[in-house]
């Protein structure tokens, strides 16, 4: 019985090791300086392994500038916007994680 309970707990803990990431990409109006959600931005999540950088997830933001990345394993990643803006992020072990917004230059 103890073994079964331990196995179930182990299984549940493995399930918990995945985070749903959420964030937003903004762009600044060149004249007025107002901030807008950046639609159509490419958001890539990259992890560095022994074999070099590996692309984990790609998302194209909608009109609200939001991006969503489900079931991401906790760890250190690079968030790359439009292929040239890199941000170092840490994905923690929790069901949902909101990342700080990023501003496209």
């Amino acid at each position: 019985m103890k073994t079964i309970a331990f196995t179930i707990l182990l299984f549940l803990s493995e399930l918990a090791l995945a985070t749903n990431l959420r964030g937003r990409v903004d762009i600044r109006h060149p004249y007025t300086g107002d901030l807008f959600p950046a639609s159509g931005a490419t958001v890539e999540l990259i992890v560095f392994t022994n074999f070099g950088p590996q692309l984990v997830y790609t998302y194209f933001t909608g009109s609200d500038g939001m991006y969503y990345m489900p079931s991401i394993i906790p760890g250190n990643y690079i968030l790359r916007i439009n292929g040239y803006l890199d941000y170092q992020i840490q994905v923690v072990n929790m069901p949902y994680q909101d990342l700080q917004p990023v501003l496209m230059q």
Binding site: D26, F36, D86
Partner: peptide
Amino acid sequence: LTQPGQRYSETSYMTPV
């Protein structure tokens, strides 16, 4: 594609590396 009503207020952003 952004509507005028979708403007955001100033906030702190991640710093690119």
